[in-house]
Nucleic acid binder design. Sequence first.
DNA 1: CTAATACGAGACGGCCTCGTATCGTAAGTC
DNA 2: GACTTACGATACGAGGCCGTCTCGTATTAG
Lengths: 208, 208
Amino acid sequence: MTAPESSAPRLRGRPRSPATDAAIIEAALRLLEEGASVGGLSIEGIAREAGVGKATVYRRWPDKNALLLDVLRSLEEPGPEPSGVSVRDDLVAILEFMRRRGLAKRNSALLRNVITQMHAHLELWRAYDETVIEARRTALRAVLRRGQETGEIRTDVDLELLADLFTGPMLSRAILHEWKELPEGLAERIVDAVLHGVAPAPRADAPG
Amino acid sequence: MTAPESSAPRLRGRPRSPATDAAIIEAALRLLEEGASVGGLSIEGIAREAGVGKATVYRRWPDKNALLLDVLRSLEEPGPEPSGVSVRDDLVAILEFMRRRGLAKRNSALLRNVITQMHAHLELWRAYDETVIEARRTALRAVLRRGQETGEIRTDVDLELLADLFTGPMLSRAILHEWKELPEGLAERIVDAVLHGVAPAPRADAPG
DNA sequence: CTAATACGAGACGGCCTCGTATCGTAAGTC
DNA sequence: GACTTACGATACGAGGCCGTCTCGTATTAG
């Protein structure tokens, strides 16, 4: 859904080219991949990269934020459906999805650039946060809650903290390190380590 | 150490004011706190904010990167010294240090803004990474290795993964969420959860 | 005192971007 | 064919920042 405006069914003249829509989005992604910062992106530069007139961009999006929001949305993928069988496997699937997203250089560069600069463009961040991130977090929370009900996960740990314990290691790698640092099998290793702990013996001297 | 140049001992005329050095650094920090992006910072704007002529800035730093590097360095703190007694307590100390750093609004905004945009300004990022981050990671690795030797930490988990399991949850909160999300006691809760696992019973059905 | 340098202020030409407007042309509807 | 809109290209004035330079003044050494 990269169509910026589908409300007004213009019938009279030459219709807008969907290929041009895509070319503009693609150009923005290409620039971001190449290390451009969100703040450094310019409509002018995007139009140039897309081989398109500026007016063609302004005809579709009123300003940079609106365009960037569509750029972000163009990267959305459905996300894994929880199998409902093993909570452990569902967690692995969620983290593996994150890993593969972070691996795609396109997403990684975007993640890094976007996540922080968004806080400067607060409207943009909130829109992205509410539409994309919150949905994922809700799905994760549901899996975790199911785990608590089935006894696979302790109930004396805050649900938010649980979520961060699983996703934090994967996210911090994707954001801070290079994409090289997301090897195959990482999702499973994280999930199992967090589930069973990194202390060797199930000793009963836990201070809680 | 915010003195940009201490090599040439100018003796003839009026000496440079250290207060002006500080005022410039302070102005840059203030702008970053207020949500300015690294790319959006301008020498001109910093000079304006500092109530200082542009030439006064250029007299000290050759370009924006050099100035920003000194801005980053001005935020460095020594970091916790491992007690050497309990590995668990040392880990808590390290994470608690991270938490307090992330809490200072100044650092949090910087973290977010800097960490990503750095990848655009690669030289800047590498300098920061090598001088600050790598030192911290080395200290953390030492603690973890000691834990493996004393038997407090399993030896069948990669050292890098171990580090991320502990720091990832704290970092992802500091970067992604607001500073509100770093409550007191978070360091302990993360460390204990990662150490003992979030699965309730030490069941032996781990698949590998 | 004089000489040397730092200081705040800001002028300067150059570059880039903004958002708008105007070309001539292309591609549709009626 | 007539009309309408999209298209690429480009010009426009406004404005920000760059890095250099020049003011008049302030602060130090000798």
